[in-house]
Simulated scan of single mutants.
Amino acid sequence: MTAFDLATTSTIAPVDASPAPKPPLRVRRSPLVPPGFSRCGLLSWREQSGVLHIAHPFDERSISDAVVVDGLVALVEAGLLTGQAQFESAAMGIIRTSAGTPDEAWSAFYDNSLRELRTGASAFAPVHERAQSLIVGRTVLEVGSCFGFFALACAVDGLNVSACDISPGAVSLLSRAAHRLGLPVVASIGDATALPYPADSADTVTLIHLLEHLDPAAAHTAIGEALRVARRRVVIGVPFEDEPSPHFGHLVRLTEDDVYDWARAVPHTGAEIVVDHGGWLVLTPGS
């Protein structure tokens, strides 16, 4: 995801190329459903003059990753939003219209999201809990960190954390959040298939909900890179879906068979496979 400047009301044009052009989005905050809008889950919407208008009720007390995702998934299921770029544009619009300044909006988004993950209020909390339970050592590298909630949670636990993501906007947001919270997270731009880290430089390397975004060849390369960088453990977590979710940027449908295939395909000195809110593969790098 990329960060946008905050505004009270914002117009966001989709950036993906597709056979059927998507309408531009206009997002605003409204505690009540505005006149002429239709309610859809947590959000409301209308189409007017070729523009999809989205209204949301979220403010600094309620904005979080969970409510944004829940609200937008309802629009996807209703056929109103399609594709990753439009989904992310709508998400950015909602976040940046939840408060009056950039610092207020992003601070509230991060604080509320981290609290929901920590208390179990977020549906994604069990994934974080499982991943954190699998970490060994004091140094952690999170690959594909996006907003970096997992990296920040690890830092709260007292670990020395590095994080990388292919999106400069996501890296910038994480760096700013870590600085504001006083947490030791060093975020860098990096491709999972060519990690910008030396060999054996982190005790644990995590790839949490990343490999479903890659084609099979790239996924294999990313696992190899993680094994190169990890001293003691690689932790891989993936969702099991009936169909890949294009609005999340998922390219492939993964099953338990894929997890076993990865364990057989890469060199390691030990592998553990767990099914819990998706699939987990824990690898011990070779000596």
Rank of each mutant, 00 (worst) to 15 (best):
L251W: 03
Y110Q: 07
R232P: 03
M92P: 01
A263T: 06
V171D: 01
M92K: 01
G41C: 04
L6Y: 08
L32C: 03
V27I: 15
H53P: 05
R46D: 07
D111V: 07
W45R: 02
H277F: 10
L283I: 07
L134E: 12
S162Y: 05
T139V: 10
V143E: 04
E77S: 10
S172V: 02
P244R: 06
P57L: 08
T82L: 04
E272H: 11
A74L: 03
G144P: 12
A105C: 15
P196D: 02
L134C: 11
L6D: 07
D103L: 13
V67I: 06
H268W: 09
D65N: 15
D242T: 12
I95Q: 02
R29F: 12
S113A: 09
V127W: 00
A153D: 13
A17T: 12
P57M: 08
L283G: 00
R29E: 05
P57D: 10
S62I: 02
G279W: 00
D257E: 12
A151K: 03
A99R: 06
Y110K: 06
D59M: 02
T269A: 13
F240A: 08
G270R: 09
D157K: 10
W262D: 00
L251N: 01
S287R: 15
Q132T: 13
G286V: 15
A131M: 08
D16K: 01
L281F: 15
L181P: 01
L25N: 06
L43F: 08
A3Q: 09
L174R: 07
S172Y: 05
D157G: 05
P285S: 11
L173Q: 10
S107Q: 13
L75R: 12
G286I: 14
L159W: 01
D111F: 01
S145I: 03
E88S: 04
V274Q: 06
C164M: 10
V67D: 01
G169K: 09
A99Q: 04
E142C: 04
L174Q: 04
S10L: 10
V186I: 12
A202I: 02
S107E: 13
I273G: 00
V68Y: 07
T221I: 13
A151E: 03
A218S: 14
P31R: 11
I208G: 00
D261T: 14
S167R: 04
